[in-house]
Amino acid sequence: MGIETQLGNNVLTTSLEKLVNWARRSSLWPAGFGLACCALEMIVAASARYDMARFGMEVFRPSPRQADLMIVAGTVTKKMLPAVIRIYEQMLEPKWVIAMGACASTGGIFDTYATVQGIDQYLPVDVYIPGCPPRPEALLYGIIKLHEKIGREKLLER
């Protein structure tokens, strides 16, 4: 967005910022990226009891080109890594990444030859959600934290 660089940092751009951030965080569409056990808690978070739809997020897009959020749910193995990075690159800006669970954050209990020790070695992660697997409420809490983070973003930086 180029117009705000001309206008500078004043009331007009901060209000615009608030509006844009509100729009972005209220309808974050996740790319369905369930890899392992955490994917089940992600599916349950979208179901009726925990209900991600109240955040506007129940539409898990199969195609990364229509998604803004990648929830890496599960262990990333060395064989899967190129696919993860390719999907991340296929997503359009602005995009965010949540590392859900212990395996996506740090490799979890699998400190072995085939596991990537944390997806943050390859992708910029915005929120880490610990747990093995984290409860659906923990995922929702992580998403709310991401919403707060998006609310603090400056237009000029994105």
């Binding site: 060395k78 064989k79 400190d111 072995t112 030859y113 085939a114």
Partner: peptide, 19 residues
């Protein structure tokens, strides 16, 4: 289970756990 270019056979006892 591993990529086609993988070197080595992981479950052998002389293959280290962390690769």
């Amino acid at each position: 289970l591993l990529t086609p270019e993988w070197q080595g056979y992981p479950l052998r006892k002389d293959y280290p756990l962390r690769g």
